[in-house]
Each structure stands twice: as C-alpha cells, then as structure tokens.
Amino acid sequence: MERDEDFRRNDREIDTHFSNDDGYLEETAAEIAEPYQASRDRVDRRERDQVGDDSGSKGIGYTALAIAIISLFVLPVLLGVAAIVVGYIARRKGAHALGAWSIGIGIVSVILGIFITPFF
C-alpha cells in the first residue's frame, strides 16, 4: 500500500513540474519522408510491362509452343504441364498469341494423356 501511495505522489510531483499552457503532455513529430503513392507505382509498372521489356518474349513463346507440340507425342502429361507453365510465362512477358496457343495445346495434351491414351 505504501508503494502505491509513493508512486501516486511521485506522479503528481512530476506532473506539477510541467508548465504547458495548452494542457497537452504529448510529444509529436513531423514526418520527413515523402508519402508513398501506390497508384503512381501501379501505373509505372503497367507502362514498363507494356512498353519496355520485350526482350526474349517471342523466344519464350516459341519455346513454349515447341514444348506443347512435342508433348502431343512424347510424355504428354509432363510436357503438357511444362507447356502450360512456360506458355503462361510467355503471355506475361508479352507474347500473348504464342502463350495462348501453348497453353491450349498443353491442356489438350494433358487431357489426351490422362483420359484417352490409357485405353489404347
């Protein structure tokens, strides 16, 4: 009990030493850094994706298409899934038509490999 009274007495003594006219006992600070603008970053990323990085997108697209066509004849499930993944990457890089064809042929190859080929 005596400790509680000592703490209360010390708190009162500390509070009385402050002489603020407005009555606030808070410390505030101003931010120095520039505020982050997410919308501008998103626009910059879209422009960079559309305009800039076309290096290798057609090469990846043709590679995906080659894997998809080969998957029709050899290891249809494994190479079909690989064609779908590489086709998706090609579409993200900018080779939309090649990527779409690779994904489509890869899906057909996987379906043929899983459902139709076991019956022959």
Rank of each mutant, 00 (worst) to 15 (best):
G61I: 03
P76E: 10
A83E: 01
Y24P: 00
I67A: 02
I60L: 14
A97R: 13
S19D: 14
I114M: 12
A33K: 10
S39R: 06
A83N: 06
E47W: 14
Y88H: 11
E13A: 12
F115K: 05
R40K: 10
I32L: 07
D49I: 09
Q50M: 11
D54Q: 09
N10I: 15
A83P: 08
D22F: 06
Y62T: 08
L65K: 00
D54M: 02
I70F: 12
N10F: 11
G23K: 04
S57T: 02
V110Y: 15
A68P: 05
G61D: 03
I114T: 15
P35W: 10
F73V: 14
G61Q: 04
G99T: 12
G106A: 05
F7W: 11
P35R: 15
L79R: 00
I84C: 09
D4H: 05
G59Y: 02
V77S: 01
R8C: 14
I116S: 13
S109C: 05
A33E: 09
I14H: 08
I89Y: 07
Y36L: 10
R12V: 06
R45I: 00
A95R: 01
T28L: 13
W101K: 01
I111L: 12
Y88L: 11
G59F: 00
V77K: 00
I60F: 11
A66N: 05
E31F: 14
A64C: 01
R45N: 02
I107C: 04
D22A: 01
L25Y: 11
F119D: 03
R12L: 12
V74F: 00
Y88D: 13
I111S: 11
I89G: 02
